[in-house]
Design a protein around this nucleic acid. Structure first.
Lengths: 338, 338
DNA sequence: CGGCAGCACTGAAGCGGTTTAGTTGCTCTG
DNA sequence: CAGAGCAACTAAACCGCTTCAGTGCTGCCG
């Protein structure tokens, strides 16, 4: 038989469609004996719910959306996203929820997709990343009234629940570590200034430098690309009073910076210490391996999935959850300055 | 009004639901004047189709599936997938088709997902990657009778259409290039032997070495991980008659190998030339930058999307399409041997 | 001018579930 | 022992859209 339906099961079991529906969804309304009989028949007929039919009738769509507005090519490169994706799926698969992924170029298009997917009932909720300073996506999602979970914060993300890690503490731990090694001239290659996390990290560096009396700590914004990371590193290293340590907001930029140092004949870690704000296999496999801030991105993804599913099931359960503060993993790229 | 339906439009336009459906889907059955009136009203009411309702009634689900059986953490690292993903989406978005992505650990689970998604009507077709030697997924997909497009080949992929590039020619171009530089001891760090493309590349190296009289060309299988890439490189470089050139099946392994060479004090490209079979930003940002085989993975994704949509629209249009053979991009990691 | 093809459109029947308003038949209670 | 209360189940509506068998009406041809 091609694709049995609950009507087939009902006929076979000699009950009504409604009874079958109750039985299959573990709801009250059928006796334990009948439920088991129905389940056995469904199993034996190899029945599977038709996701569209379920989504109709106002029920859940059985999927959540993750929309990324980034240049297509950075997405494959950032290990962060792969890890996050896997974690999300691990967390979602428990409830049989699928993940709809879309990568596109800008925030305007992203917002359009939120609108479309929400009105097409294609997803039950969204995961929002790369929180911006005055994020235009927030009011749209609030207006749509669809469950959405923000990764990042604490910060302005309206009424939407979030999962966040303490970027500020993490950045302070890096600067403290470098200062303890004896570094006085520290530079920070930040990401896009439009992102909230970039702002927080820049502020953390500034505050920390002030506290430690490091007058020369600078933060330079970039677009997160390897190209700008390399260019900025080159500029920094060409200065007469070049920094003895550089902190990169992403591992890709850190690796690019490492390449520039090698090219310019600046010894790492002898003459220059490098730290990446993001850890990944990438940071481990280069030589010298990079001291980096390790966070469990996979676990973050799982946590996000759990929270989002909770909000979908019960919108009033929305809350902000803190993810453990990332810890510094010391490798070969940092040492005392000469 | 909350979410207008075609019934609302029909009432507003003073026609039947059927007429509205015809108008909105560009089908015959309404006059041009009526169609425009209906479209204008739909637009004005901000109507969007309910994807589930459409998928019911036997129509399309409006999504295709990409299921990857790989360790979760490699997925984020391989730039190849990110690029492919973006390309796929670029190709799919034209027809408003979404991509359902799932990453899981093994092929058995992958097959289970094919079965489930197909019977739940969640997707209209699948993209299949990492073709294996006797791929168990092929017969399942054939049996399910659902459109599926294989990336990779030419090879045994049953009746399923494919998009493929000539790995063999590509590998030969690498070996020829290295031989022309004067290398005689060439090693090849291959990927998982279970993959068809691994086998093809190994055969190409062997045939080419024989033709050129390179008796010492060896291929070592790995699991594509940076760890095995590094370990195998270490083993090779520790040999008394160590190779003067190493070809890596992936950029991640190549970067890991580069790290090992630096660590062991083997100069690249002075004492050792390195070539990666996969190009990406990664290959460009390390120092020395890696000579690599460049293919337009984004374009590949687009092409795959186009072909898959064509097969979904008309199963009889299934065919094998060749993607341009990748070309070698020479960078800093290759030179004449000492 | 009758007949017939073709166009524009209607009305209703699904698609495969969920949900709700009954309907039985039974037990329990006062 | 009447009536309430409940468990177990049925029947039918409904979700939003597609599809198909009609139904008028027009226009053209012989």
């Amino acid at each position: 038989m091609a694709r049995p339906t609950i009507a087939d099961i009902a006929r076979e079991a000699g009950v009504s469609k409604g009874a079958v529906s109750f039985a299959l969804n573990g709801r009250a309304g059928v006796s334990e004996a009948t439920r088991e009989r129905i389940l056995r028949i469904a199993e034996q007929m190899n029945w599977r719910p038709h996701s569209a039919a379920r989504a109709l009738g106002g029920a859940r769509a059985g999927a959540v959306g993750l929309v990324l507005a980034r240049p297509a090519r950075t997405i494959g490169l950032e290990p962060f996203f792969g890890q996050l994706l896997s974690g999300l799926q691990a967390g979602l698969s428990a409830s049989g929820t699928a993940l709809q992924l879309l990568v596109l170029e800008d925030t305007a298009a992203e917002i359009e997709v939120y609108r479309r997917w929400a009105s097409e009932h294609r997803v039950d909720g969204f995961v929002v990343v790369d929180l911006q300073v005055r994020d235009p996506r927030i009011p749209v999602l609030e207006e749509l009234g669809i469950p959405a979970l923000v990764i990042g914060g604490p910060g302005r993300h309206g009424s939407l629940p979030s999962v966040w890690a303490d970027d500020r503490e993490a950045m302070i731990s890096i600067v403290d570590y470098l200062a303890a090694l004896g570094h006085r001239r520290i530079a920070h290659l930040a990401g896009l200034p439009a992102f909230q996390h970039t702002q927080r990290r820049i502020r953390a560096v500034r505050d920390c430098a002030r506290r430690l009396g490091l007058t020369e700590a600078v933060s330079l914004p970039t677009d997160f690309s390897d190209a700008e990371g390399a260019a900025a590193t080159r500029t920094l290293l060409a200065r007469p009073d070049r920094p003895t340590a550089i902190i990169y907001d992403s591992d890709v930029m850190a690796v690019a910076g490492l390449g520039v140092a090698a090219e310019m004949g600046v010894a790492v870690p002898g003459e220059l210490s490098l730290v990446s704000f993001d850890d990944s296999t990438l940071a481990r496999i280069v030589h010298p391996s990079l001291t980096a801030l390790s966070r469990d991105t996979f676990a973050l993804g799982e946590q996000v999935a759990r929270e989002l599913l909770a909000v979908i099931a019960d919108p009033s359960s929305a809350r902000d959850v803190q993810n453990p503060t990332p810890r510094l993993t010391v490798r070969e790229s940092t040492a005392r300055p000469l």
